[in-house]
Amino acid sequence: MSAPREGAPDGAGTAPDPAQGPAEVVDARGLRCPLPVIRLAARAKDLAGGTEVSVVSTDPAAQHDVPAWARMRGHETVAVTKVSGDWTITVRLRRSDT
């Protein structure tokens, strides 16, 4: 697993903007733990392996819990960024074994 890219400075992040809607973004802003992880997992269930999916969260616990979830599920965390109070964590989904 490659190390996640971390700590882009405020305003200079490469995080997808949920309003512009690139590939797959789960908007979990305003939700508290464990809901951001639950919403992300629910979306991930319907996506193909190898897809990159981001979750945007205002809950600081998400920066720890999304990578922990990814590790437990065999997904790969590719980016953790914070832009003005919003955490964006992007994971690449594990390719199906079957």
Partner: peptide, 10 residues
């Protein structure tokens, strides 16, 4: 828990 990189919820 955060420093260990383990799940903090639940």
């Amino acid at each position: 828990l955060a420093a260990m990189g383990v799940l903090t919820h639940g």
